[in-house]
């Protein structure tokens, strides 16, 4: 557990070329974890519009309250829809790779790390592709 040896920034970034499947899994698990917690803070901030909006029953009935307008406004932006697909992909990878990590902790699959990682990537790819029609229906695509 010695202090990490400082290889310098450029060399550090260059090391990805030598990554094994297990190292990719480790890096992607980190990146997706940070994306998810970052999203959670943004998500709660957006949903906070419900607090002032809740005291205006007429606007709620008409669907013109601050919360409804904010969410529908965001959902109307094409980039937001694309980012949602990315969020789903990050979540699915973190979940499937997370299941793999939990199994490894139970002593299952330690020697088949690479296969487990490929399965996580494949499941993520399939679910992400299947979700595209849901997140990006033809009417929101600008072309």
């Amino acid at each position: 557990m010695g202090a990490p040896y400082d290889r310098g920034l450029i060399e550090d970034f260059g090391r990805f070329r030598y990554f094994s499947a297990g190292m990719w899994a480790w890096v992607l698990h980190k990146v997706t974890g940070w994306v998810l917690i970052g999203y959670l803070f943004a998500h709660i901030a957006v949903l906070s519009t419900a607090i002032p909006a809740a005291s205006d029953p007429e606007a709620i009935a008409a669907g013109t309250d601050l919360y409804t307008r904010t969410i529908q406004g965001l959902e109307g932006i094409f980039l937001v829809r694309v980012l949602e697909v990315g969020l789903l992909a990050a979540a699915v990878f973190h979940m499937t790779n997370g299941i793999r990590l939990l199994l490894v902790d139970l002593g299952i699959g330690l020697e088949r790390e690479a296969e487990g990682f490929y399965v996580s990537v494949a499941v993520t790819a399939v679910i992400t592709v299947l979700s595209i029609p849901v997140f990006l229906p033809p009417e929101v695509v600008p072309w």
Partner: peptide, 16 residues
């Protein structure tokens, strides 16, 4: 909130 109810159709009344 994405596959059963669609995020784009969320309203405060629905969330409530």
């Amino acid at each position: 909130l994405h596959f059963v109810n669609h995020a784009a159709e969320v309203t405060l009344w629905g969330s409530a």
